[in-house]
Design a binder for these strands. Structure first.
Lengths: 171, 171
DNA sequence: AATGAAATCGACCAGCA
DNA sequence: TGCTGGTCGATTTCATT
């Protein structure tokens, strides 16, 4: 760990992360060959990255379309500011079925809520649920026509500059 | 596959998906025990789900904070409508380093862009890059103060009704 | 869908830089 | 602290019923 309480990570770690965030099914031997390292070195680093919670989990990515979740809706939510229940409202929003992401923002809007549903009826129900939450003032929903990139990855989207900052520990 | 070109999925499949989307590191024997199935049955279903692309990949989830990506920015992008280059612009947006999600919407705004950066300078650079894209008219960025739920999962966020629709093949 | 055998893989170790 | 190479046990995988 460095002075910022963030794990020390070097180029090799980044290479490993990039690879396993794309496909964690790869076996140790192949990974080791790709990185020109020994199996045990890769194993050692992988367990370290997991221990340090750089890798938080290994998960199967499920295609929403395969389950009929064809609609993505973005809802802007404004709350009654005097209430001061921002935290509770955020949690209530996150717990609604279909909601997969909730952002608490600094903008004119307080929350931005992302949800996935199968049809218009579910969409209406979901928006109703949001409005029903105590403290919610106003909502505005936008229908997503197309989403580029369904499974956002962390390392894959980083610039070389961002990666350098991590490797150096210079931020 | 059903008449909708969507794979046939039953309750057992859903149970498997729910489990491996949370933790794909689980070994077959444990999974089989949990579901009260034989190892081979689970193995058979898992490979089927992968073949059918219900499971698109097994991936390691990397914590953005561990890599210093402490800022999330949401940018609304409007384009010059006469241009009709929506697709190209969408791709250009998605390719910018730091951008992890691009939605093409039906609202007053054309694109909603999500990005993760390490500091304000990178945020400014990123917004500059967006503005520079040919056809981009106007942008408005919002800073995210807090994100509830960092790794959105598909099945975990579905209601029982949504799941029933999948299992029955009734949509 | 279950069985069991064969192949493969990941975990671990002692030793070393 | 991080790496090597090798061994052993566990686990996946597959042919057969």
């Amino acid at each position: 760990m460095d002075h910022n309480d963030r794990p020390d990570i070097d180029e090799t770690d980044v290479a490993i992360l990039k690879r396993v965030e794309r496909d964690a099914d790869v076996n140790l031997a192949d990974l080791a060959a790709e990185l020109e390292l020994s199996k045990s070195a890769v194993h050692y680093r992988l367990t370290k990255l997991k221990d340090e919670d750089v890798i938080t989990s290994i998960s199967a990515d499920v295609d929403p379309l395969a389950l009929g979740l064809e609609m993505v809706v973005i809802t802007e939510v404004s709350v009654a500011h005097e209430s001061g229940y921002a935290d509770e409202i955020g949690h209530a929003l996150a717990e609604i079925d279909g909601v997969f992401q909730v952002y608490y923002t600094m903008g004119d809007v307080d929350f931005i809520v992302h949800s996935r549903v199968q049809n218009r009826e579910q969409m209406n129900d979901l928006i109703d649920e949001i409005v029903t939450i105590d403290g919610v003032n106003e909502t505005a929903s936008t229908f997503v026509m197309k989403e580029l990139q369904t499974n956002p990855k962390t390392v894959a989207n980083m610039s070389t500059e961002m990666i350098e900052n991590v490797v150096d520990g210079t931020e």
